[in-house]
Simulated scan of single mutants.
Amino acid sequence: MSKIKTHLLLIILLATAMLQQAAAQTENAISEFKPGAVWYDKKGVAINAHGGGILYKNGLYYWFGEHKVEGSAGNTSMVGVHCYSSADLYNWKDEGIALAMSDDPQSDIVKGCVLERPKVVYNKKTKKYVMWFHLELKGKGYSAARAAVAVSDKVTGPYQFIKSYRPNAGKMPFYPQGTPEAEKVNCAAVADNDKFFCRDLEGGQMARDMTIFVDDDGKAYHVFSSEENYTLHVAELTADYTGHTGKYSRVFIGKQTEAPALFKRNGIYYMIGSGCTGWAPNAARWFTAKSIFGPWEYHGNPCEGPKKEITFGGQSTHVLPIAGKKDAFIFMADKWVPDNAIDGRYLWLPITFKGDDISIVWKDSWRLNDKSNFSLGN
């Protein structure tokens, strides 16, 4: 066979393979959300990005989440943070592991640690992508309660781990205007609601379930469950987003709230969270505030429909503003499966508004282009 014929044959084979791959991806393509169903990436592999968050950048959405493995061991981190990209939010390309766990037993992020709820934001000043997550040290259960941060020059990574620690050591909280005296910390006469705060004051406050929120002015905030999960903290980050400034407030003191997810609409800050019942689902709760530091007003359960009292079997992890759509936000929740962590499912539902109030209504399936999903009118 001549070289020309050989080259032509190779080109034909390559083109055929590319067409077959494109056809397979088209066959796997979806055009609607089905909350709780197995969600496959473009290669037909189940998406593995639990407890995640999404960053929108240059026309693409990037989904970061915990990579789980089979069995109960999947509740520890053996692989790292997985990243996927999408232009339409339905169909996702596997971008690989953005932050890999370490083989070094001295590393805070050695394989077998607990890494939860990774969130990535972009810093316009430093031009760095910054990832925060909740970290528990290997073999320590949930006693470490640390915040951890990593950075990258590229959105998909690799991310370089910087440090883990408990935030705001030695710092007293900021009190928004109108804070009742009863909610101000007095470690000289410790009340039940302050005992964990005062215990941890010198070494830094506990940081478990968390999210990161970037405001319109570019300032970023770390919101996390603290004080043995009894109280939320809203903490300001440094200008480069890799540390805490020491300014923070306490929210819903003593009421046991975790799984915070924040968004902003018409100048009002919204936060959706859950109660604390371990891996078992419970009723969601939502709050509003006119300032990021509060005071935050509690509004009850936003969910409507079957199993609304257990957030449809899931727990909040992120609220995603849809690019280019006014008043369009997606409530993202995870349905945890602790006995086989990799089988955890994703519950994405539209947030609907009536004035400044919100509802999250169960839907077996739904589409982005259906405007009725996002607004109930005023």
Rank of each mutant, 00 (worst) to 15 (best):
M1I: 14
S2W: 08
I4F: 12
L9V: 08
I11T: 10
L14T: 12
T16H: 06
T16Y: 10
M18F: 13
Q25N: 00
N28G: 10
A29F: 00
G36W: 09
Y40D: 04
K43S: 15
G44F: 03
I47C: 07
N48I: 10
H50Q: 11
I54V: 15
G65P: 13
H67D: 13
V69L: 11
G71Q: 01
G74W: 03
S77H: 09
S77D: 15
M78A: 08
M78F: 12
S85Q: 08
S86Y: 11
K93M: 12
D94F: 01
D104V: 00
D104C: 01
D108Y: 00
D108V: 02
K111E: 05
C113Q: 04
V114I: 15
E116L: 00
P118Y: 08
K124A: 14
K124C: 01
Y129F: 15
V130G: 09
H134Q: 13
E136R: 00
L137E: 06
L137K: 12
G139K: 10
K140M: 13
R146S: 13
R146I: 02
A147R: 02
A148D: 11
P158Y: 06
A169I: 07
G170A: 04
P173T: 02
F174M: 12
Y175K: 09
G178D: 05
G178T: 05
E181N: 11
N186A: 10
V190T: 13
A191G: 13
A191I: 06
A191T: 14
D192F: 05
C198T: 10
L201R: 11
L201S: 05
G204M: 01
V214K: 09
E227D: 15
Y230D: 14
L232P: 02
H233L: 11
V234Q: 14
A235N: 10
E236V: 06
L237S: 05
A239C: 06
D240F: 06
D240M: 04
G243M: 00
H244I: 04
Y248K: 04
A259S: 09
L262R: 02
F263C: 07
K264G: 05
I268Q: 12
I272R: 02
I272M: 11
I272F: 01
G273C: 14
G273E: 04
A280H: 12
A283Q: 01
A289D: 06
I292V: 13
G294V: 10
E297R: 14
H299Y: 11
H299F: 09
C303G: 03
K307F: 13
T311M: 07
Q315F: 00
Q315H: 01
T317Q: 07
T317P: 02
P321Q: 05
A328Y: 09
D334E: 09
K335M: 13
D339L: 03
N340G: 08
Y346D: 01
Y346G: 01
L349W: 03
P350H: 00
F353M: 12
D356R: 10
R367P: 14
D370Y: 04
D370E: 14
S375H: 05
N378P: 04
N378A: 12
